[in-house]
Design a protein around this nucleic acid. Sequence first.
DNA 1: CGAGTCACTGGAACTCGTTCTAGGCTAGCG
DNA 2: CGCTAGCCTAGAACGAGTTCCAGTGACTCG
Lengths: 204, 204
Amino acid sequence: MTAEVKPAALRLTERQEARRRRILHASARLASRGGFDAVQMREVAENSGVALGTLYRYFPSKVHLLVATMQDQLQHMHETLRKRPPTEAEPAARVAQTLMRAFRALQREPHLADAMVRALTFADRSVSPEVDTVSRLTTAIILDAMGLADSPTPEQLSAVRVIEHTWHSALITWLSGRASIAQVKIDIETVCRLIDLTAPAPAR
Amino acid sequence: MTAEVKPAALRLTERQEARRRRILHASARLASRGGFDAVQMREVAENSGVALGTLYRYFPSKVHLLVATMQDQLQHMHETLRKRPPTEAEPAARVAQTLMRAFRALQREPHLADAMVRALTFADRSVSPEVDTVSRLTTAIILDAMGLADSPTPEQLSAVRVIEHTWHSALITWLSGRASIAQVKIDIETVCRLIDLTAPAPAR
DNA sequence: CGAGTCACTGGAACTCGTTCTAGGCTAGCG
DNA sequence: CGCTAGCCTAGAACGAGTTCCAGTGACTCG
């Protein structure tokens, strides 16, 4: 019975787990409206039924909160993508297809995307561990799409990093209205060509 | 005589021009110490000898100010690079060399780099025109390095955009301590290979 | 010269992220 | 049963970005 909850050591009571969920939920909801600015800590606290101090105990800053929110969303996305893997044959095309799917998902909640991406790139060193987690999740998604969850070469990892860079930065230009959806698509497809350069063993 | 000053219509008095310079200078100086957080509007105002309200008349927000600071620095960089163009033979290598030079310059003032890059990626739509100027400057620098200041193909422009994405995002990961200098170098070199893919006419 | 206009000044005021304080509730333990 | 430790709440307080306002000085136009 007592062993029913798994994170006994790290994350305490399930009541606390519930609080955490409520907070993340409120955060996402507020973000879905006005974006980064609309996520106000007092509002998040109210909407999730905790005191301001408690909110800060769970997430030491607004950026921490939003990055955690992004983790949460990415996790969903990852699971969804696992269930419906890309249909293309070539690794480059598979990655492009996957990222475009993710992009379309973000388009459905542009304000939420704004809040999360802005937080991610604005994060300073104190948020590094959390940002790193997001980065690892993203890497995993891309590697999955390439069809090599393991055994990537260092060259391939570099290509994946560059793809991630492009992904984040392209999102920002889109969110700030400086690039169109079509442009983002082109950029993604362009960078995915790098994968061909670091092609699977045979091409070497 | 009266034609000596060019921006007669847009930017008024030379006294105003001087104020603007003082503000940008103060901004850069403060940024060189503590980075983004150390650039406090009240301090910038004091240090440049203008009232807070005046500072806001010149730069409608802290982000505007820092993006303008970046414009300023980029302009210097561009001129410097023009004087000492890259020595490599291949376009890809030339671009990589140029960006690594810029990177080394940023390493000399990491706090300033932090302030400028954070502002750039945090900027919202209200700063789009200014951010766009920075982007055009960066594009010009890269095209210069490739050796084709004019007549780039759409394909090449895509590659340049992707290189810019990588450049900004890689800087961020470096600034937030999540990537080493060596890693940034690798990422830059990796993305520059894209140039070979959109090679000059002959290779088509 | 006089009046109006406009940029600039000094400083108060407002917002929102963040921190701090005092007190209350719960849970385990003597 | 009463105590102690921790977590939580309500709310005040502080800091920095941003806005506002009244006043002042300079320049222009009549």
